[in-house]
Design a protein around this nucleic acid. Structure first.
Lengths: 150, 150
DNA sequence: ATAGAGTAATTGCACGAGCAACCACTTGGA
DNA sequence: TCCAAGTGGTTGCTCGTGCAATTACTCTAT
């Protein structure tokens, strides 16, 4: 309950670090590939998924986005040719978003930029055991916060 | 340059933890006080500043917001009576945003909620030395990323 | 078999944010 | 002194997002 000065400082560092890194990564990706971070995330999620496809709702939740947000993001990417929609055969309400070949190519193009960015602007500041430790702590944070939301 | 699996996992944890916690804190603040996180941040920045006032640009940069974003955020808060504008006497282009008494009262009202939230959903997952360590690491991250932007 | 509840996705609407253009003012140099 | 360049702040425009309502469909219980 009582929030110590250290804890508050850590929280503020957390917020500013997030903002600073996301801003740099976004700009790098836009400059080098004309691609927004949101698009990149969609391509990653889809290519990591079975058959390069995900139901719209699954996509939305893995993107930490509302369902309507996902709808429109996919709309834009369909227009750009990076993604296609497919109707779901066993549930006719449903729709899949599927990566196209162009989408896979764009991701293959972009990910070295992004990985280098994450490495340089985030991971490089971490000590040898920090990555592992940080992931553990932050997964705890997520789990607790999610529990509250449910 | 090479991004290890651990480092990538840490990065993803970082993103999801940020999203999860900010979402909970925002909702708690809105539910309990009808106040957005953005408003809360303005009040904190202003009350921490000398004379409860800050130049618009200073406010914008401490909020990690564009200048136009700050202008409109302050507009809304002026309408709500939480903040007032004052012309700057020695630079007639300039303007101050100043917390009003109502603003101070609203902050006094809201901060226990927010502090409890940060404590419960963020700090509680941290071990005894984690806060300090985390702050140090993340400040490093911010410094490096900012250097790139400059 | 069918009504009613629930779910997947989309769409209407309103809002918050950034960029670029703008106005008002200050500052530095000729 | 006066002009050009720069700075502080606001405004016009456009875009991305969430919420709530809507449509289409599925599932459950009767």
């Amino acid at each position: 309950m009582g929030l110590s000065a250290d804890e508050l400082a850590a929280w503020r560092s957390f917020l500013t670090a997030h903002a600073a890194v996301v801003e740099v990564l976004e700009r790098e990706l836009v400059e080098a590939h004309g691609m927004a971070l949101a698009d990149y995330d969609v391509l990653v999620q889809l290519t990591e998924a079975d058959g390069g496809r995900l139901r719209m709702s699954e996509l939305a939740s893995s993107l930490l986005l509302s369902r309507s947000g996902a709808t429109r993001l996919v709309d834009r990417m369909v227009r750009a040719g990076l993604v296609a929609r497919e109707r779901c055969p066993d549930d006719r309400r449903g729709a899949y978003a599927v990566v196209t070949d162009a989408g896979r190519a764009a991701l293959a193009d972009a990910w070295p930029t992004h990985a280098a960015g994450v490495s340089r602007w985030f991971a490089a500041a971490l000590g040898p055991n920090d990555a592992d430790h940080l992931a553990r702590v932050l997964n705890q944070v997520t789990t607790r916060a999610r529990a509250r939301s449910a």
